[in-house]
Design a protein around this nucleic acid. Structure first.
Length: 264
DNA sequence: ATGGTGGGTAGCCCA
């Protein structure tokens, strides 16, 4: 069994105590972090090592973005890709060398895309669509068993958001983004492991805005974080769950972790 | 219909 977690941590240095608590409580073999907001030399390597996470691939950036994959299982960094073609640190891939030997895990932080869902009025929206298009071309050529996980910044299904109609023009749930994500899915035949385990129309969110006094009161969540697998890995899924408890922790991230267990 | 909060960094950007 190999367990893989993903969590947009929104500053790993600020929230390292919460990461340690999550690792102590759930002990995933691999943790994929997004928005670490630091360069590799300032990444809290020692704290991870103390918890047994000796193997790390950190693609950092000062102040913004940045991803890191930490692991109890030996791994080697496999690739870092710039799907936005602008130097931002939004991807790192690793290859597992112990249990799960040969599995490739792609950790990605898709651009949020700004506020206006129009690439002319808002270049960030165009960059998000272009990022997805480059990912799609990459996915079309994948030959190895692969897990891709992270903050996709898109909630594709009506039941992935608290109010489908109200969010159709809100970036993250617009038809144009959902269509782009579908093309990425179809390019490799990706299996949405989260929805395989928590089928529609069940409630399933991974993010709640900070801009609500009580995130639970209105439950205005969205499923922005995802775990996808190559078609050949579909039968390996053993469990998948959302750790909503972290959203109540002091000074928490606005995203919560997803944990996936695979029989490999 | 609007604005609401949070993190990082250095006088706003990003989410």
């Amino acid at each position: 069994m190999v367990s893989i977690a993903t969590w947009n941590i929104n500053s790993v240095r600020l929230r390292m105590a919460q990461v340690e608590r999550f690792l102590a409580e759930h002990a995933p073999d691999v943790l994929c972090l997004q928005e670490i907001k630091t360069i590799e030399s300032l990444f809290p390597h020692e704290a991870f090592a103390r918890l047994g996470y000796f193997h790390r691939a950190v693609h950092g950036q000062k102040g913004y973005h940045g991803v890191a994959t930490v692991s109890r299982i030996p791994l080697r960094e496999y690739a870092r890709r710039d799907w936005q073609d602008n130097g931002e640190a939004r991807h790192v891939a690793v290859e597992l060398l112990g249990p799960g030997q040969g599995l490739v895990i792609d950790n990605v932080y898709v651009p949020a895309g700004g506020d206006i869902p129009d690439r002319t009025a808002n270049p960030k929206f165009g960059q998000k669509l272009d990022f997805l298009e480059r990912m799609t071309r990459w996915a079309d050529a994948i030959e190895r068993p692969t897990i891709i996980t992270g903050d996709f910044n898109i909630a594709p299904l009506a039941c992935d958001v608290w109010n489908h109609k109200a969010l159709l023009k809100v970036v993250s749930h617009t038809p144009i983004e959902i269509e782009a994500l579908a093309r990425l899915r179809d390019a490799h035949g990706w299996i949405d492991l989260g929805r395989a385990r928590i089928p529609a129309p069940q409630r399933y969110y991974s993010w709640w805005s900070y801009r609500a006094q009580d995130w639970r009161a209105g439950d205005r969540g969205r499923r922005l974080d995802h775990v996808w697998a190559s078609p050949g890995l579909a039968g390996a899924l053993r469990d998948h769950f959302v750790v909503e408890a972290t959203r109540d922790w002091e000074q928490c991230s606005d995203h919560v972790p997803l944990v996936t267990e695979l029989s490999l």
